[in-house]
Every structure is written in C-alpha cells, then in structure tokens.
Amino acid sequence: MGACRLCLVEVAGIPKLLPACTTKVREGMEVQTNSERLRKYRRMTLELLFAERNHVCAVCVANGHCELQTLAYSQGMDHVRYDYRFPKWEVDDTHPLFGMDHNRCILCSRCVRVCWHIEGAGTKNVSGRGAKARIISDLNQPWGTSDTCTKCGKCVMSCPTGALFNKGSTVGEMERDRGKLEFIVTAREKKQWIAE
C-alpha cells in the first residue's frame, strides 16, 4: 500500500524518503528508521490524522486497544497543533452484527482489502476523493442492506481504530482478534486445509 506514510525511512544515497512496507531490502542497504526528522514527520502525520475526523478516545469502543492511539503514545504525540476540523460523519448501524462509525475511520482501506482479497465478498469500497473519501458498502448503501456482505466480520477484525465494531460493545471493549486473520492467510498459503 505505502499509503499511510508512517513507516517512511531514510535510505543512504536516495534523496526521497521510502515507505518501509513496500520497499525491497537489498544487500548493503543503509537504512535510518528513527532519525530526528522521521520522528518529527511521524508526529505531524499523526496530528493530521487526529485533527481530520473526530477521535474522542474517552468514549471510543477501541479505547486502550487502538492502533492509532498506541502509535500516538509511542511517538510522544501529546497534543495536536492543527485546527480540529470537526466534520460531521454519520454512524452506520444498519448491519445486524456490526457497526461503522465514519468519525473514527482513518481510510487505511484494510477493511476493503480483507473484504476483497481474503473474504472475496467485495462489499467494502472507497468512494469520493480527498477529505471527502469514505468507506462504502456495495453501491453506497446502508451496510445492513448489502447483498454481498457475508457477515464474516473480517473487516472488523482488521480495523485499526474504533471505526468498525461489533454491536453491543461499549467503551474500551472492542478488542480485535487479529490472530484469526493471520491464521486464515497462513493456512491458505501453506495449503493446510487441503487433505494429503
């Protein structure tokens, strides 16, 4: 993906910063992962994310189990210097099992990718562009009316924030079972489900 730009690293001899997640390592490559400059950019990127939508940790289902929150702690981001945009996003609670709160979405598109590439349902998608980009279900309809959603819950497992959640969970209760996704992918790749 190379989209979130949080894993940018400095590589000796290359003027541009490269995303570690999509850059192939080479013999003899000299990589700087934690310079002053990189730490500063990471903090700024996180501040931009927090200012972009409404991340109110104190009332969030993912509080304490959130990758965004954890990253912000680890980077020492203790306040946001940019103006909060306070956009008005809706919550989609039409699905019988899951809910989606667009206010907490960081548009990482993990839900879209698991939905297409691991579950193969193709329910989730990104629509719109720039700050107006949002995750949609099927043809931009309430998630509960989707014909393609298999209710597998993989998107919920993959979501780094409190944007996707199991219905019925309250503040701080939304723990993700990421092990399950990893198990499915590994088992498929190693063909563990195919009888000898």
């Binding site: 190379g2 979130c4 990127t45 960081i106 548009l107 562009r129 720039g130 700050a131 980009a133």
Partner: peptide, 21 residues
C-alpha cells in the same frame, strides 16, 4: 490540490486541508 487529492495518503489528504485552512 485539496479537492483533487485522491485521499490515499495522509500528508496530502489531511495536509492540504490544513494548509488551505
């Protein structure tokens, strides 16, 4: 640029909004 950003990466999507502000 803010309107035309594809929205994939954070610095451009959220940064242009802040710079515009």
């Amino acid at each position: 640029c803010m309107d035309e950003s594809c929205g994939k990466c954070i610095p451009c999507r959220a940064g242009t909004v802040q710079m515009h502000g």
